[in-house]
Computed example of a mutant assay.
Amino acid sequence: MRDGPTRATLPVIVASATLTVMAGAVLGPVVPGIQDGVGVSESLAGLIITTHGAFIVLASPIAGALIDRYGPRRPYLAGLGIYALGGGAGLFIDSFLPLLASRAILGVGVAFVYTAITVLIYDLYRGDRMDRALGLRSGANSAGAAVWPLVGGALGVVSWQFPFAVYLLAVPLGVVALAAIPNTGRGGSDVATDGDGLSAATERSGALGVLRRRPALLAVYLLYFAANALLYAVVVFYPQLLTGIGIDSSFGIGLYLSANGIAGGVAGVLYGRLKGQFGAHPLVAAAFGLWIVAFALATVVASPLEAFAPVVLIGVGIGLVFPSTFVWVESLAPTAQQGQFGSYVAMAGYVGQFVSPVAFGPLVAPFGVRAVFAAAALVAVVGLASFAAAVRR
Rank of each mutant, 00 (worst) to 15 (best):
L297Y: 01
A309W: 02
L155G: 00
P366D: 08
G265M: 14
L257Y: 03
V269A: 11
R2W: 08
I245V: 14
V157M: 11
G79I: 11
V301F: 02
L231W: 03
L120H: 04
P362G: 13
A154S: 13
I318F: 07
S102G: 05
L27I: 13
L231N: 10
R2C: 11
A389T: 11
P239N: 03
G361M: 07
T325L: 04
I247K: 07
P182I: 14
A179S: 14
L77I: 15
L44A: 15
V329E: 07
P32E: 12
Q340K: 14
Y83H: 03
L178F: 12
S250Q: 14
L97V: 15
K275F: 08
L66H: 06
P32F: 00
R393E: 14
V301P: 01
P282M: 01
V176E: 12
N228R: 04
R132K: 11
A348F: 11
L10H: 04
I49H: 01
F322H: 02
I247S: 12
V158Y: 13
G153T: 03
S43R: 10
G46C: 06
A146P: 06
R69K: 08
G244K: 13
A89Y: 11
R212A: 15
A380D: 09
A145Q: 07
V379P: 10
L242Q: 04
M130S: 11
T118W: 02
V147Y: 01
G86T: 03
D36L: 14
Y350M: 15
R273H: 12
P29H: 09
F55C: 01
M130Y: 05
Y76T: 02
G53C: 00
Q161K: 14
E203S: 13
A63K: 07
A101C: 05
R2M: 05
A336L: 03
F164P: 04
G279I: 10
A23E: 02
D194V: 00
R73E: 09
L169N: 07
F92W: 09
A263R: 00
L91H: 01
P323H: 13
P323C: 10
D131W: 07
Y70M: 06
L66Q: 06
L222S: 13
R213A: 14
A133Y: 08
I105K: 10
A371L: 11
G272Y: 04
V147S: 08
F373G: 07
G272W: 00
G197W: 11
A333S: 13
N260I: 04
T50L: 00
S159M: 03
R103D: 02
N183L: 12
T6Y: 03
A227G: 10
I105P: 03
F326A: 15
P149L: 06
A59Q: 00
A192K: 05
T184L: 05
V38I: 15
R129T: 14
I245E: 09
R392H: 15
L106R: 08
G252L: 00
I262Q: 00
G264W: 06
L255M: 11
S43T: 15
V372P: 07
G127S: 09
P310Q: 04
G37S: 10
P5N: 10
T202A: 15
V113K: 03
F251Y: 07
G246R: 08
A25D: 08
D194T: 10
A346D: 05
F162W: 09
G252V: 09
A375G: 09
L332G: 04
L178C: 12
G187H: 12
T115D: 08
V21I: 12
H281V: 12
T51R: 02
A207C: 02
L283F: 05
A365L: 14
Q353H: 02
R137C: 12
Y167A: 06
